[in-house]
Design a protein around this nucleic acid. Structure first.
Length: 191
DNA sequence: GTATGGATCCTT
DNA sequence: AGGATCCATACG
């Protein structure tokens, strides 16, 4: 499967979030379809790490070019994968929240110690794909970790939208309907 | 320098 | 319902 080109990522954060649904995330010999994402709209979004334009060692990657991976450690034991979006200098990103496993499923299972969904949930999918902090700043059109289009067509009417998960602390931003998923897909993560 | 809590997941 | 586990961030 061919990687999407760098130009695929150059669009608004919400358009990219929508367009990532249905694409395939590949890591080496393992891959799955993106079925759930969340948009983090930078300085104006209280739930975003870059809220208020905060520019630190951790958030620096969000200021980089679109299509760059932003991988960070959460709760001391899991990682989350984001796709940097918008033009360079605009610190926005799309969090990948769930995948439908497509190939290399046995290998994914072997990386997941616990019972439970293989790749539904941001921490679970990075574990299943072996995405560690070393992939931070990786360009997502370069193997081994890249996004691809396998011809799957997602009708606009099948895209559902609602509040993001785990951002109750973010005051007014907590209710923004910036989580997108494939309607009625059984492997979308639970809030 | 210390304190706090998180874009989560697992087990009881 | 609570614990794991540790770094980024805020504050002094």
């Amino acid at each position: 499967m061919e990687p999407l080109g760098a130009e695929f990522f150059l669009k608004s954060t919400h358009l990219l979030a929508r367009d990532l649904l249905g694409k395939v995330l590949v890591q080496g010999d393992v891959g799955g379809r993106v079925i759930e994402v969340e948009a983090y709209q930078g300085p104006s979004d209280r739930a975003a790490h870059s809220y208020g334009g905060r520019r630190t060692r951790r958030t620096e990657v969000m200021f980089g070019p679109p299509g760059t991976a932003y991988v960070y450690l959460i709760y001391g034991m899991y990682t989350c994968l984001n796709v940097v979006s918008a033009e360079a200098g605009s610190p926005e990103a799309v969090l990948i929240r769930a995948l439908e496993p497509i190939f290399g499923v046995e290998k994914m299972a072997s990386r997941r110690l616990a019972k439970g969904p293989l790749a539904s949930g941001p921490g679970r999918l990075t574990q299943a794909l072996g995405i560690t902090l070393s992939f931070n700043r990786h360009r997502l059109w370069c193997p081994p970790l890249y996004l691809a289009d396998d011809g799957y067509v997602l009708e606009a009417s099948r895209v559902a939208q609602g509040p993001r998960i785990g951002v109750a602390y973010a005051k007014e931003a907590a209710g923004f309907p910036w989580r997108y998923w494939i309607q009625s897909h059984p492997l979308v993560s639970k809030g």
